[in-house]
Simulated scan of single mutants.
Amino acid sequence: MTSPFLSVERRGRVAILTMSRPESMNAIGTLEDCDNIVDTFFQLGNDRSVSAIVLTGSGRAFSSGGNIKGMKERQGIGVLDQPDSTRANYRRGVQRATRAMLDCEIPMIAAINGHAIGLGLDLACLCDIRVAAESAKMAASFIKVGIVPGDGGAWTLQKIVGYSKAAELFLTGRTFDAAYAQSIGLVGTVVPDADLIETAVGIANEIAANSPRALRLTKKLLREAQHGRAHDVLELSAAYQAIAHETKDHAEAVAAILEKRAPNFTGD
């Protein structure tokens, strides 16, 4: 029996997800891999004891993306026997994984430990925060394989770096390093390789120290604000604020500030 694509480690309110196919540089090769991603994010999303997620890779890669051998053999998550089947395959597999990550209300940090190529880069872009090891290499390189970003990367990358820079990266397919990724705002923090996980977990713990419900509402509001009109976002902000004001954690936060002590959040 094949091991799950994602292994899960818990550190308090933080879940560390590790892509566990080092022999293939954590390429996503099967529908079962996609199903595991969907199931993992669904389960974590329903777990109110999880307040932050760190996503990283095992071995020398974050993720090399899709499985090139599978493309040649017309099996796996990509091309099949004819266009209609291939379209359905993308929707059934990798796009379900994309939707699961987009729908996740838990703050997510990508700890980019090595190569993040094609689909691998897009997985990192689906996270809210990106931290990269100094040795990390990245590429939006679908064009180098003669295909387009079928996983939704055309939407996510330009949300982060803007249309012009995203177009440059997709249309050239060039590989770039962590320092360049930081210079264009794709990565927020670059650290020595040995410090990557602890840095990412440190950020996750800083996030997880806050009210669990307010965290999820804030992330959802940020995501909605990416494509909403200002007036619509204002209405949604008022609705979410009305919910947040009625939580016990809000009352606890106010009390803790007035009493000059650390808050004790319960998620209620």
Rank of each mutant, 00 (worst) to 15 (best):
M1I: 04
P4F: 03
L6T: 02
E9L: 06
L17H: 02
T18F: 00
S20K: 07
R21K: 14
S24E: 11
S24M: 10
M25A: 13
N26C: 10
G29M: 11
D33Q: 07
V38I: 06
Q43S: 14
L44Y: 01
R48P: 04
S49Q: 13
V50T: 13
L55M: 10
L55P: 05
G57T: 07
S58H: 01
F62Q: 14
S63W: 03
S64L: 08
M71C: 05
K72H: 10
K72Y: 11
E73T: 12
E73H: 09
I77A: 00
Q82N: 15
S85G: 00
T86R: 06
N89Y: 01
Q95W: 02
R96F: 02
R96L: 04
I112K: 08
N113D: 02
N113G: 13
G118F: 03
L123P: 07
D128E: 06
A133M: 09
S135Y: 01
K137M: 14
A140Q: 03
S141G: 13
G146R: 02
V148C: 06
P149W: 01
P149F: 06
G153V: 11
W155F: 12
K159D: 15
V161E: 11
V161S: 15
V161A: 14
Y163Q: 15
Y163L: 15
S164I: 03
K165L: 14
A166F: 08
A166K: 10
L171G: 03
L171P: 00
T172Y: 00
T175W: 02
D177Y: 06
A181I: 08
I184H: 01
L186E: 11
V187F: 04
G188F: 09
D193V: 06
D193K: 04
D195Q: 14
V201M: 03
E206A: 15
I207G: 03
I207D: 00
I207T: 08
A209L: 05
A209C: 01
N210M: 12
P212H: 08
A214D: 11
L217T: 05
L217A: 14
K220G: 08
R223I: 15
R229W: 04
A230L: 14
A230V: 10
H231C: 01
Y240R: 13
K248C: 03
H250K: 12
V254C: 08
A255S: 06
A256C: 06
K260H: 11
K260N: 08
A262L: 15
F265P: 12
F265I: 10
